[in-house]
Design a protein around this nucleic acid. Structure first.
Lengths: 197, 197
DNA sequence: TAATTTTACAGACTGCAGTCTCTTTGTCAA
DNA sequence: TTGACAAAGAGACTGCAGTCTGTAAAATTA
């Protein structure tokens, strides 16, 4: 780690922290890049050497949190015997995390940005830990004779992901005017019932 | 209808038609407002007296199509005896219409724009015919003892809408790299199974 | 029919994300 | 040590959606 890299990393950190703080104080769309660089005494050049876009700075942090948190969840569900229970608890913890820690504006922004054509998608990265956790549940839940086996585990994971995206999209759309924690259960229980033997 | 109004309506139509043609030729995001007004020999002033935004011109047409088509669907499903069958057929026809007639870019654009905070949402308008059709199915399907009755029809409609949004969001996200017509069945059958007695 | 008001429209202007070019300064090979 | 190179950063510039102000002509009122 030489002098130049150290300084560069510091600049990146400075920009990232200021930006995230501002996103939090206002909302993502109300913060401008000019504001961020003014606040940090940097420049457009500095900003765009470190981040591909204004969204990128946001997604980078999100990835970090997402990975960390999802990995934590694995341990919390591992003690459940039934995979259907693991799934239910996992989904509940996810929704709780999203509602309490991430919040509405974060989800709204991510779901909006993911549909931008120019940018590369985060949801489509195949090795998100979220995907392997779900797949594991369905593979083993089928072996355990809990889930139907006329659908492949991959198919079931797709169904589950689409259902999650549906409620999260709706939550973002409605500006969080219902509680994810309270309402996710109805939808997911219907889905799980449809997936069981 | 006086002279001024007639001319204004003509201008609006001219802009709308040119814009929709261009959106179709390229894609929504590749067409600029400047291009539209140049093509139609009009001006920013003209454009923005008739449309609230570039998205608006698009949504206006979409509403029209949506209403027309959804109203048509009512008749096509009315002959089915079982409400669960009505629901399944309705969903299949919807997905077919979306995949064949609307296309991926239209759905992508709408789902993206709906998450914009500044604009008023189309999905949240309570009297979309889509909503009354679904509600009718659940109300009568419950009376008919087909669907479970520990969930209100409104709740069931929410579940159904969220599931639809989930698959459509995913389809838009994946740039239509799977066929809605072929794949919607797995998801919706799981949902319907979860909703049945 | 003259005076006043309204409105469709023209086009200059603003705000913002993102790009491009140029400069400075640290790094590395000889 | 020095000369070539690379990479961090500065800031002017571009492209685009949307706003603002001014104007001509139609509609309305007197």
């Amino acid at each position: 780690m030489n002098k130049r890299t150290t300084k560069a990393l510091l600049t990146k950190k400075k920009i990232s922290e200021a930006a995230l703080r501002l996103f939090n104080e206002k909302s993502f769309s109300e913060v401008t890049v000019d504001e961020i660089i003014k606040e940090t005494n940097t420049s457009k050049g500095a900003f765009y050497t470190h981040f591909k876009s204004k969204h990128d700075i946001f997604l980078e942090k999100f990835k970090e949190i997402d990975d960390y948190y999802v990995n934590e969840l694995v341990h919390l569900i591992a003690k459940e015997e039934k995979y259907a229970d693991r799934l239910e608890i996992f989904l509940r913890l996810q929704m709780t995390y999203i509602e309490k820690d991430l919040g509405w504006d974060v989800i709204r922004t991510i779901y909006e940005v993911e549909l931008n054509i120019e940018r590369d998608s985060f949801f489509l990265i195949p090795d998100r830990p979220l995907y392997s956790i779900l797949l594991d549940i369905f593979v083993n839940g089928q072996k355990n004779e809990e889930f139907r086996n006329d659908l492949s585990p991959e198919k079931m994971m797709d169904i589950c992901l689409r259902t999650m995206r549906g409620i999260l999209y709706d939550w973002a759309l409605r500006k969080a005017n219902f509680s994810l924690i309270e309402e996710h259960g109805d939808l997911f229980r219907v889905m799980i019932r449809g997936l069981m033997k």
